[in-house]
Design a protein around this nucleic acid. Structure first.
Length: 800
DNA sequence: AGCACGCCGACT
DNA sequence: GTCGGCGTGCTC
């Protein structure tokens, strides 16, 4: 008989293995590796989703296997290279196979059950009270539909009663696939139609027929017909009843992106042409990865477009990855504009149905180019040959959930499997990638010229300590203030950047130093002026500002530090005539709001844009000539070895927003640490110098890329047990790792409590590949049957 | 992770 | 004698 080994859709570690099912004769022909199936699982044979990963012929039938219940679809079959990729992630990022497989697959289309039951016995004596109560609602002659949500009975109880011969069940499963359809109308009977035209009464109906005949229309959307003729649905229905016309349904793909202006092919500049050719030449010589380090505005996208076109013309497919945040208008516009409906877009705001539609278009080979965020690296593109990762250094390329993969590593593995090409692009490549260049692993292309010929902006660093000494206590330095003023006068746009939302960073008592902290989390609460409350940015709890200090009863409660809300208020106060837009999590929470504000600013409907991270990248505003960084060192002092790299990258990105048009841009960076190398070198946009400094520090402190840093986070609401288990784990782990590895911790996390859950962490420095499985086993055994949960993150992007 | 089974104390 | 609370072990 044929046995299929199935990966069950269940992320739990205890059942992280394949389960064998026999394949019924009805499915023998169609079943294939990579197919999604429905299988009964567990004692109650609950039907769940699985993916077939192996098919074997077995002669002996001593083990009683369960049967595969059904196939989910024959359309989408997980290709072999993606299955290999799942195993790769399981090994590298210590996740379950199920987690790996189901992060690759399109969203689970939930399986829902419709259960009907009827009584088949007179004898209810063996039933419990609960069961008797349930039976009283049932019928003996006919099956009744059971809604498990509304009654006090579980699915398992039903199964149990059926097994004891009390009731009989009819269980049907449905997949909520919801393929979307549209209603179309067409003429069915021409003769009848012409006859009807002689009828003097039915004016509306005649209108409809005339419309069909005069415009020689085969078929038309029902909704469109109603719109154009202003007739009612009833009129059309009555025509249908007469058999004159026909209304029919057709499945459609949900419209993901609306309309895109044509984006014509540009002639590449000499430099772009050279980059394009270098990448292809190196690729032909067997080089898998090319890194383009190009200043903002150097025209990387144009190189990407040409690479994609090159491969498409050879009938290959391509994936273009962009950070989620810049997956808004611009990049999409360009790719859709150039390649039209050959492009599929995948981003996190798609509904499950929309995402599923895009997946089908891709796996059917209708869309050969995929533009998407992180998870689009798994897109089942037919004949894939090229993967491009734009803004390669971005943190959104690291997954926060299991599998905690880094997109670049997965992409590299994927092009290795398919003999393809990976192109990375960034103005400020990650230290790891550039290190790979210096080791000769990646091919490097450097572009230091802007395509428009516009020069890089003038950057001014302002020492805020000096401002304070000379009596300026405002959040704007004199230089920034006068620059904004002048920019407004010249009718130019300004961007003010501050990586912190809310009004003030913390609220504290001036007498005793008490800080308003969240009662669930170990963090200071942020004041929000719009709601006049203190909000915890970790658990969302809000509270009112105390009038008196809860500790010393003093009334000197003051705000400290500034957030975007405060900047907005200050700007409005200082420049009352300026039109201001604020973009942060609070103002863009609503769907479509991000895009609306972006367009508003682009169309110069506002003079000043205030925002967090989200305005620092991807946006191209021609009329912006001033960028102000209100506090450059907010991230510099976090306990994280990437703090300097992150600050440098952010400042370069932000500065890149200035002067993209014809006028020279100006950037004002306000800081309390003007001499710090990441700020100094960001001001001169000197990546190479920054890399040299940073890589030496990494080498000296033995941080990535010179070693792996594996981060273990332990959480529990029982602090005592948490500490005890952490210490025991450290002792045991110590015994299995080589002596040149270092263990840091266990220590309380930088944020020691979130939502009443205590957090401790431990880090291991050392090449972990050969040891991670045994360490995982130790931790798994130690934490099982305790309140402690853990997560493992290989080379995390954030240590907080 | 679910879910069933089984053992034990509490209670009509 | 019945109910339900949680510890234990299994899932093809």
């Amino acid at each position: 008989m044929i046995i299929a080994s199935v990966c069950i859709d269940n992320p739990s570690k205890e059942i992280d293995r394949l389960f064998d099912y026999s394949v019924p004769d009805s499915l023998k022909e169609s079943i294939k590796i990579g197919m999604r199936v429905i299988v009964p699982f567990g004692a109650s044979n609950k039907l769940i989703q699985g993916v077939v990963l192996e098919i074997n012929e077995k002669s002996e039938e001593e083990i009683k296997y369960k049967e595969i219940y059904d196939i989910i679809d024959e359309e989408f079959i997980l290709p072999q290279d993606l299955i290999k990729l799942a195993y790769f992630m399981k090994k590298k990022y210590v996740c379950t196979l199920s987690e790996a497989i189901y992060s690759i697959l399109p969203p689970k289309m939930g399986i829902s059950e419709c259960i009907e039951a009827k009584i088949i016995t007179e004898d209810c004596s063996i039933c419990s009270k609960k069961e008797k109560q349930f039976l009283s609602m049932l019928n003996k002659d006919k099956y009744l539909k059971i809604d498990l949500k509304s009654i006090n009975i579980k699915r398992a109880d039903l199964i149990s009663m059926r097994n004891r011969g009390i009731i009989d069940l009819k269980i049907e499963t449905k997949q909520n696939l919801n393929k979307k359809t549209v209603q179309l109308v067409r003429l069915k009977d021409n003769k009848k139609a012409i006859e009807l035209l002689n009828n003097k009464k039915l004016k509306q109906q005649r209108n409809i027929i005339e419309y069909f005949l005069n415009n020689n229309i085969n078929e038309i959307l029902l909704s469109q017909l109603i719109d154009i003729l202003g007739c009612s649905r009833v009129t059309i229905k009555s025509l249908e009843e007469k058999g004159v016309i026909e209304i029919f349904e057709r499945e459609v793909y949900r419209e993901v992106a609306t309309e895109y202006a044509n984006y014509p092919k540009h002639i590449l500049s000499h430099i772009q042409r050279k980059a394009f050719e270098s990448i292809l030449n190196e690729y032909r010589e067997g080089r898998r990865v090319s890194l383009i380090r190009g200043v903002t505005g150097c025209g990387k996208t144009e190189i990407y477009l040409n690479l994609v076109e090159y491969f498409i013309n050879l009938n290959y497919g391509a994936i273009v990855l962009v950070p989620e945040i810049s997956l808004t208008p611009q990049t999409v516009e360009r790719f859709k504009g150039r390649f039209k409906d050959k492009v599929a877009i995948l981003h996190s705001r798609l509904s499950d149905g929309e995402r599923y539609d895009e997946w089908r278009r891709i796996s059917r080979g209708e869309a050969k180019i995929v533009v998407g965020a992180r998870s689009a690296v798994f897109a089942p593109v037919e004949n894939l040959k090229l993967i491009i990762i734009d803004e390669e250094h971005e943190y959104s390329y690291k997954s926060e959930q299991n599998p905690k993969y880094l997109t670049r590593e997965v992409a590299e593995q994927r092009v290795n499997l398919i003999d393809g090409l990976l192109v990375l692009g960034s103005a400020t490549p990650s230290i790891e990638s550039y290190y790979n260049v210096s080791r000769g692993i990646y091919n490097l292309i450097e572009i230091d010229e802007r395509v428009s010929g516009s020069t890089l902006p003038d950057v001014h660093i302002v020492d805020m300590r000096q401002e304070l000494i000379t009596g300026n206590r405002s959040i704007f330095s004199r230089e920034l203030y006068s620059s904004i003023e002048e920019n407004l006068k010249n009718n130019k746009q300004t961007i003010l950047f501050l990586n912190r939302r809310g009004y003030s960073t913390f609220v504290s008592c001036r007498e005793c130093g008490y800080v308003c902290k969240c009662s669930n989390c170990d963090v200071a609460m942020t004041y929000h002026i719009s709601t006049n409350t203190l909000e915890c940015h970790y658990c969302g709890q809000t509270m009112h500002i105390p009038k008196l200090c809860p500790k010393c009863k003093s009334k000197y409660i003051k705000h400290f530090g500034a957030g975007t809300e405060k900047i907005e208020q200050e700007v409005k106060r200082l420049f009352p005539s300026a039109r201001v837009i604020r973009m942060d999590m609070d103002t863009t929470r609503k769907k479509g709001e991000h895009e609306r504000l972006y367009r508003l600013f682009k169309e110069h409907k506002a003079d000043i844009l205030i925002g967090t991270q989200m305005i620092s990248k991807g946006m191209d505003f021609k009329n912006v000539t001033l960028v102000g960084v209100v506090a450059a060192d907010t991230m510099l002092n976090l306990p994280d070895f990437r703090a300097a790299e992150r600050t440098f990258q952010l400042l370069v990105q932000v500065a890149g927003r200035a002067g993209r048009g014809y006028d020279k841009g100006k950037v004002v960076i306000q800081t309390y640490e003007p001499e710090h190398y990441s700020i100094q070198l960001a001001a001169t946009q000197n990546y190479n110098e920054f890399y040299k400094k940073e890589i030496e520090i990494r080498r000296f402190l033995n941080n990535p890329p010179f070693t792996d840093l594996t981060y273990f986070l332990f959480t529990s609401n029982n602090e005592e047990e948490l500490i005890k288990i952490c210490k025991e784990i450290e002792q045991e782990v110590k015994r299995v790792i080589p002596s040149d590895f270092t263990i840091l911790g266990p220590t309380p996390n930088f944020i020691s409590k979130i939502k009443n859950t205590f957090r401790w962490n431990m880090m291991i420095k050392g090449c972990i590949v050969d040891y991670i499985d045994i360490i995982d086993k130790i931790i798994y055994d130690k934490t099982r049957a305790t309140s402690v949960k853990y997560s493992i993150d290989l080379n995390p992007y954030s240590l907080i």
